[in-house]
């Protein structure tokens, strides 16, 4: 057992347990916090896989922006607890289907990836963000620009969807 393997197993246990915790927690806030821990552990996996830029954007975008948005909505709407969810009788079919999905995934991995491909020491050329930026802004520059348009459209869509449609009377305009 090398150090990396031990680290891998500890992080894998954390990621799996927090995912299960998210699934089973009654409180939405706890689910969101479990998911933050999961995202951070996945970010450490990215560091182990020589992708420091992806790791930091994972923490900034997922654990930062997206989860803050989630917590904002949870607390804005007051949805901290939803009692009476999760009836165990209804769980049978989803569990069977999730199990089938998992078995299928494991089978494909064992069949196609093989056991002999190892990931070596960190510190290869892949960990250099400037090289990644070179590829991103040459080969992938069109998808990059389309992403900008996508984010703009999503922003406009979110504003339109959450705008309160309220007829404003002329007398009310001054009070606000």
């Amino acid at each position: 057992m090398t150090l990396e393997l031990i680290l891998f197993f500890i992080l894998a246990a954390i990621a799996t347990l927090t995912a299960i915790g998210m699934l089973l927690s009654r409180s939405t806030v706890y689910a969101a916090l479990y998911l933050v821990v999961n995202f951070v552990s996945v970010a450490i996996f990215y560091l182990l896989l020589d992708a420091p830029f992806i790791a930091l954007s994972q923490i900034a975008v997922y654990a930062g922006a997206i989860m803050v948005l989630f917590l904002f909505v949870i607390m804005l709407l007051g949805l901290e607890n939803l009692a009476g969810e999760l009836e165990w009788k209804k769980l049978v079919w989803p569990l069977v289907m999730g199990g089938i999905l998992l078995v299928e995934g494991v089978f494909l991995v064992i069949q196609r990836v093989g056991q002999n491909v190892y990931i070596g020491e960190t510190g290869t050329a892949l960990s250099d963000p400037s090289l990644m930026a070179k590829v991103l802004f040459t080969d992938y520059v069109l998808p990059f620009q389309i992403t900008a348009v996508l984010l703009l459209v999503a922003m406009i869509g979110a504003i339109v969807l959450s705008k309160r449609e309220k007829p404003v009377l002329p007398s009310q305009g001054k009070e606000a």
Binding site: A15, T16, V106, V113, V117, Y118, G120
Partner: peptide
């Protein structure tokens, strides 16, 4: 030295 299949298995589990 972690086999890449471990990562893919973890990904499948998640």
């Amino acid at each position: 030295m972690v086999p890449v299949s471990y990562y893919i298995l973890l990904s499948a589990i998640l």
